[in-house]
Design a protein around this nucleic acid. Structure first.
Lengths: 206, 206
DNA sequence: CATTTTTCTGATTATGTAATCAAATTTTAC
DNA sequence: GTAAAATTTGATTACATAATCAGAAAAATG
């Protein structure tokens, strides 16, 4: 009909251009990732990018959306292979860190966009209130809430605990300096720390 | 003598230019922070920036160094007003988050540089191995190690625990979406979580 | 197979950039 | 107070960028 009149080549090219954008961002960073650099990597002319995307901002935003969708799908699929909140949390942490380790290019591109792109009013993307938009944060909060209800997690503020977990996950990619550790070990350690922090006390001595 | 032959006006101007650079980075971000934008904010000509700094890269790097020094001084001073590792850790967390809350411009500028600037070989700054260079990470590890030695902290990997703490601190600035919380509350919550995660068990039932 | 529509390119445009330089101005030295 | 050194500027340079456009090439249509 009309909803998907433009598909076939359109979609293929858009995918190709987005893929080249991801590669370019990882290679040379947001600042140098010009349309000509992206076009070079896609082996097309720069004008073709302009044909398929309204402008550079549009390309970057569609690229970001693709990266968010891809990582969220990867992580949430692995998360929900089990039912108990404690296992889901462990899976969530492991999958989040594993995604970084196995998709370095996508991860680098995501970082570049989030920390560089701004709205027309110069508001950085990372400061934008994504009111419940972030599917990963939402899933994480759901898991924590369920665990709390079931009496498995002892947590006062689910929101803060979620931030601590997100922070620990996000920190993994910044490793590489004074000490190095593989993704699996790091995941296990973090999971242990979080579990301990939420452990339900059996005896009260106050 | 000769070591500090060029001071006075030199240093004053450099400070002024660095201050204007911080303001510009916070206002419009790294990408748009051109020499002319910085010059405009400092009410000087662009050529004067080139007179005092070798090139744009040099300016950015000196700006980054100033920002790192300032935040480290702020945080470490507050950290070491006490002696016990547990109190030092609480102070460290509180000061780190308080710095973000009270120095939003400096914090934004720091982020912009770290996530945008790259070496000549296109290696992003945030991926650079700062082998023991980061004074905050070093201090944090020292505190954790001392607490471990004194039997106050039950922690298997000091490095991972340090990363979790750094992550929780760094996550504070990304708050503003689905829920908001003031710096003090967030600090308290995080400190409680970390303390719980490191609590020494009094009874073993395994 | 002819024609219409879509896809794509090379060249061009207008704009912004970092950096340089000769000359003007201010400060310092004597 | 004057000469020398430092600081500062406006104008210019060479270059990269995003975006546009007319027309070529390819694909779809009848």
């Amino acid at each position: 009909m009309e909803t998907n009149k433009n598909t076939f080549i359109q979609e293929a090219r858009k995918h190709q251009i987005i893929e080249a954008t991801i590669r370019t961002l990882g290679d040379i960073g947001y600042v140098k990732a010009s349309l000509s650099q992206i076009a070079k990597r896609a082996s097309i002319s720069t004008a073709l990018i302009s044909y398929h995307f309204a402008d550079r901002q549009d390309l970057i935003e569609q690229c970001l959306q693709a990266l968010i969708d891809q990582s969220a799908t990867y992580i949430l699929t692995k998360t929900y292979t089990v039912d108990e909140p404690a296992s889901q949390l462990a899976n969530f942490i492991e999958a989040s860190i594993a995604y970084q380790a196995t998709h370095p290019k996508e991860n680098a591109a995501l970082l570049e966009i989030v920390f560089n792109a701004r709205t027309v009013n110069d508001v950085p993307f990372y400061k934008l209130p994504d009111d419940g938009e972030d599917p990963l944060l939402k899933a994480l909060c759901n898991i924590l809430n369920k665990g709390k209800e079931q009496g498995e997690f002892n947590v006062t503020s689910v929101n803060v605990m979620a931030k601590v977990i997100q922070g620990a996950i996000g920190e993994y990619m910044l490793i590489g300096g004074p000490f190095s550790i593989d993704a699996e070990q790091y995941s296990e350690e973090v999971t242990k720390i979080i579990w301990t922090a939420m452990k339900v006390e059996e005896t009260n001595n106050a």
